[in-house]
């Protein structure tokens, strides 16, 4: 009997639903949510520490070629990490181990995509 009272009470209260893709107001988004990566190319030294620590082996180190030099001003830097988000488990180990704070996890959710090539952070 109690449930009927509860349901009728629910019927006259405002729904809790958030009109999501139009607005994200009212959704619970934790401050320390581990979301998409952000890589600051100017600070990164290419030390490969994140590559070594990654538990799911999604960080590749690619060699910096001449036509990529406009992105990477630091001439001592030989390698740059590429993070494949499609296998990432968002554990934050790469962020913790980074000596120069170049790699950060923002609290924005990864946007779904129909192509795995788009799910990369360079």
């Amino acid at each position: 009997m109690k449930i009927f009272i509860e349901l009728i009470k629910n019927f006259f209260t405002k729904p809790v639903t958030v009109d999501f893709p139009i607005t994200s107001k009212g959704l619970n988004k934790p401050e320390r949510l581990r979301g998409r990566h952000y890589l600051d190319n100017d600070i990164c030294t290419g030390c490969k520490r994140c590559y070594r620590v990654c538990p799911s082996f999604v960080i590749e180190m690619i060699e910096i070629t001449e036509n990529m030099r406009h992105l990477h001003k630091n001439m001592k830097k030989k390698f740059t990490p590429v993070i494949n988000l499609d296998g990432c488990i968002f554990c934050g180990a790469c962020e913790d181990v980074c000596p120069t704070d170049a790699l950060n996890l923002t609290n924005n959710i990864v946007v779904p995509s129909d192509n795995r090539e788009k799910l990369k952070v360079k």
Binding site: F20, P21, S24, L27, L33, L85, D86, G87, C88, I89, F90, I109, V110, V111, P112, S113, D114, N115, R116, L119
Partner: peptide, 26 residues
């Protein structure tokens, strides 16, 4: 995608429910 053709990938481990919903809307 090694077995059947895939139309949309929603990465995350696990993805937030917002991301799942957003994927379907996309």
């Amino acid at each position: 995608d090694n077995v059947i053709p895939v139309d949309l990938y929603i990465p995350g481990c696990p993805p937030k429910p917002e991301a799942v919903f957003f994927g379907i809307a996309m």
